[in-house]
Design a protein around this nucleic acid. Structure first.
Length: 563
RNA sequence: UGACUUAUGGUGUAAUGGUAGCACUGCAGUUUCUGGAUCUGCCUGUCUAGGUUCGAAUCCUAGUAAGUCAACCA
């Protein structure tokens, strides 16, 4: 384990640096505890993966623990459906929490704490309407005005608070507010709401037991405290909440221990949206097929698209954690997938847009078995067999009748190699009445079979192919960026108008190697010279469906688009 | 016209007062039975102005720009 050659030490991100300093200073008795605190109101996306890798990663690296805590303080939005999917996605990423907690586990503790705030004169019941309270908040530059209920007797507030939870008080009739400072420059200090009434939705765990529910600011930090969290890591938009987080804890902290909140930048990626609201809209309005649509940035969508946990981790490792709110190039995510899949994906011949190629000098009825490697990057992946015959399929785009000089593929008179098979030379084409190409004809050189003496002859192009004898049909779904502009969130136009109309292309009548019929859903492959693909879960016994995860880099396409 | 935060190549991220480096992208080449992968090289950067210091991307001040905050959401 001792590294004798000095490998350059990977630099720490600012949170790791902070944790190491806390450890050196013996803070919280050297204990490290984090939590991942999703609200169960939607599916996890790649941005959550960044947070998950941070929360669980810190715990793993510094011998701490990380718990999963559902921040379920708003029954109007939450559902068990989400609780389940969130757990599945975290485990898919390869993490295991120490405990599962729910903010709703602490409803009684929070209630008791709130009563203490009331008795201490630090909270009061306000019976004004939401609009009035909002108006009285003032603005960042104008101080707020105090509620007429602000200085009512504690006993009165306490009685009303208990009424709030009785079911007798309608929603919106009263709230519990912290008594802080209506002139504070931080808006969150202007007597923030601690409790509100929700009577028309049962809580997904506590049912109809509670009528008054704590707000985020009075639940999150307190839950951290109850659990013994040392490092409460969250994204930058909670920066302005931190003083309030600290204020609440200051009011009842009773030992050296205290949790501390630290914020890092959230993940933004070009050509997609990462807001739950917008993603929900895409799903509800049928603009995508569901939360797991392979174009979605959700973890279930990426999984279905063909991203492996390793490729997600590869990506997260590249992007870093800072306090600068930038936007990551989608190309980096795609690169992360290619880099990971290149090492693990079995190579396959698949012809997406087939045209017949007839090897005119190959005996009719004859077939032979050829051998080909499964992955040139990984010799241990072994090899498999391909059937060669007189009639083959190749890609329509791999043939041009009048080819430019740089076209290395099949064109009359030019030799090309059929991968793992023979060198062939195009001798002509057969067209139908409309002039469309029906068949391409070629002759093969029997001495050029892979491994034979003349096989080393240099040819510019190598094509993938399939025998018509045993190729099987497949549907292939090609995905592209969901939005046609880099940063749809920063655009004034409705984001739905910015959806890329070509984000999905469905190809039918594609041909693939026959054994792929028996592969399980989500198994991933490289279609040689084309891209990385996986098997879609919609696949049935008689309908084989592939999703393109990401294309291979294509310098020929680039060359073409230049002219 | 408030508070908090941030500013390093096109993008993201290192350098923790002492040589501005890495990755992606782009470009050129090498190599290849995938126009993939590999390998090599190149392009491009410390927001501005002051100050502290032998020395500043780093510390200080001011400016500029950007993000977040005024839900009975989290």
């Amino acid at each position: 384990m001792e590294a004798t050659t000095e490998t350059p030490k990977k630099s720490l991100n600012f949170i790791e640096a902070m944790v190491e300093q806390d450890l050196r200073e013996g803070r919280n008795n050297g204990r490290i505890q984090t939590r991942f605190p999703p609200e169960p109101n939607g599916y996890l996306h790649i941005g959550h993966a960044k947070a998950i890798c941070m929360d669980f990663g810190i715990a793993d690296k510094y011998n701490g623990i990380c718990n999963l805590r559902f921040d379920d303080t708003n029954p109007a939005k939450e559902d068990v459906e989400y609780v389940d999917s969130i757990q599945e996605d975290i485990q898919w990423l390869g993490y295991q929490w120490k405990n599962v907690y729910y903010a709703s586990d602490y409803f009684q503790q929070l209630w008791d704490l709130a009563e203490k705030f009331i008795l201490d004169g630090k909270a009061y019941i306000d019976e004004q309407s939401a609009e009035t309270i909002a108006k009285q908040k003032g603005s960042p530059t104008v101080p707020g005005v105090e509620s007429p209920f602000r200085n009512r007797p504690a006993e009165e507030s306490l009685a009303l608070f208990r009424n709030m939870n009785s079911g007798e008080v309608p929603e919106g009739a009263m709230v519990l507010r912290a008594k802080i400072d209506m002139a504070a420059s931080n808006m969150h200090f202007r007597d923030p709401i601690m409790y509100r009434i929700i009577t028309d939705h049962p809580h997904h765990r506590t049912g109809w037991t509670w009528k008054a529910y704590p707000m985020y600011d009075f639940a999150h930090g307190q839950s951290d405290y109850f659990e013994g969290v040392t490092h409460s890591l969250c994204t930058l938009e909670f920066e302005v909440h931190r003083p309030l987080y600290d204020w609440f804890i200051d009011q009842f902290q009773d030992s050296d221990y205290r949790p501390r909140q630290t914020e890092f930048n959230r993940l933004n990626i070009t050509y997609t949206v990462m807001s739950k609201r917008k993603m929900l809209q895409l799903v509800n309005e049928g603009l995508v097929t569901g939360w797991d649509d392979p174009r979605m940035p959700t973890l279930c969508g990426l999984r279905r698209r063909g991203y492996s946990p390793a490729s997600i981790h590869n990506f997260i490792d590249k992007i870093g954690y800072t306090k600068y709110d930038g936007i990551i190039d989608l190309g980096l995510l795609e690169h992360s997938a290619r880099e990971t899949l290149n090492k693990s994906a079995t190579r396959v011949n698949a012809v997406l847009n087939p045209v017949k190629l007839i090897v005119t000098n190959y005996p009719e009825g004859q077939t032979e078995v050829l051998n080909t490697e499964n992955n040139p990057e990984d010799p241990s992946a072994g090899s498999r067999e391909l059937i060669f015959s007189r009639e083959l399929y190749i890609e329509r785009e791999d043939f041009m009748e009048d080819a430019p000089k740089k076209f290395f593929r099949m064109t009359p008179g030019q030799e090309v190699r059929l991968k793992s098979a023979y060198i062939v030379k195009c001798t002509g084409v057969k067209k139908n009445e409309d002039g469309a190409i029906e068949e391409i004809h070629c002759e093969y050189d029997a001495n050029t079979k892979s491994g034979m003496p003349d096989a080393n002859r240099k040819v510019k192009g190598t094509l993938h192919w399939l025998s018509t004898e045993n190729a099987v049909d497949a549907e292939v779904r090609l995905y592209d960026r969901l939005f046609s502009i880099e940063n749809p969130s920063a655009d004034e136009r409705d984001f739905r108008a910015l959806i890329n109309p070509d984000s999905l292309k469905v190809l039918t009548g594609c041909k693939v190697e026959p054994w792929l019929k028996n592969e399980p859903a989500l198994a991933h492959f490289q279609f040689q010279r084309t891209g990385y693909f996986n098997i879609d879960p919609d696949t049935t016994a008689d309908r084989l469906i592939f999703n393109r995860t990401v294309s291979l880099k294509d310098s020929w396409a680039k060359e073409q688009s230049r002219s």
